[in-house]
């Protein structure tokens, strides 16, 4: 193996993870699945009035509507995500060294389905207004003018995950929501149709299938982010 090849292996091993190396050696290509995006976006040091830009950013994030009203509910294929402002790092006490960050960071961690470019483009297209408000005080974000700029900006702020653990199913969100809707509706059906004669049961089941349309992923189904049962009918 050449020196550059060896360096490439070491880079993959320690920066991209051993899984990538394994996939590369075996030629295995991962199918679309759940993925984790982790980004740290520096906030401009400074203030407007009596509030620092970091404080304004935190205030905006905290005031964003929750659940189905959250702007992230509009972003396709977002399973779970969070924002926080990292003010500084922690001092663990002597004999550790006390140190501080020179910038504060917007930390955005998203668990989503599919490839990153599609996901981020969807984020820009479906929640552009909120995206621009969240990142309005981030360093160089004023240069972001369109979806392509946003994708490039986020990638500059991205840090590699050393380990991503998927404890869920890895299906597209639309399928997960449809399956949850079906689970809920079928559970009710079972409770409500006990002790029927075979003909009555079969008739009721056919009506249930006609109503719930198990193979139609788009409707009826649960609304993304809903904190109580809200069914989308069409």
């Amino acid at each position: 193996m050449s020196l550059s090849g060896l360096l490439s292996v070491l880079k993959i091993l320690f920066i991209g993870g051993i899984q990538q190396l394994f996939n590369k050696l075996t030629g295995k290509k991962s199918p679309p699945s759940a993925a984790g995006l982790t980004i740290l976006c520096p906030i401009i040091n400074g203030s407007c009035g009596q509030k620092s830009y970091a404080m304004q950013t935190r205030q905006y994030l905290q005031d964003m509507p929750l659940h189905e009203e959250s702007p992230m509910a509009k972003v396709p294929n977002t399973y779970l995500c969070r924002f926080y402002v990292l003010n500084d790092v922690f001092y663990e006490g002597a004999p550790a060294v006390e140190e501080h960050l020179n910038s504060k960071y917007i930390v955005f961690s998203s668990n989503y389905y599919g490839d990153l470019d599609t996901y981020l483009t969807g984020m820009w297209e479906h929640a552009q207004e909120e995206v621009q408000k969240i990142w309005q005080h981030a360093v160089t974000f004023d240069r972001v003018q369109n979806a392509a700029d946003f994708v490039a900006y986020i990638k500059r702020c991205q840090v590699n995950n050393s380990l991503f653990f998927n404890g869920s199913t890895g299906e597209p969100l639309e399928e997960q929501l449809k399956n949850l809707y079906l689970k809920q509706e079928f559970s009710r059906f079972v409770y409500e149709h006990q002790g029927l004669k075979p003909e009555e049961l079969q008739c009721a089941f056919k009506a249930f299938i006609a109503r719930t349309q198990p193979k139609n992923m788009s409707a009826p189904t649960w609304i993304a982010g809903a904190h109580k049962e809200i069914v989308k009918d069409s």
Partner: peptide, 9 residues
């Protein structure tokens, strides 16, 4: 500061 879950139930 902001947490979103696609299926809170």
């Amino acid at each position: 500061n902001h947490y979103y879950n696609a299926y809170p139930l």
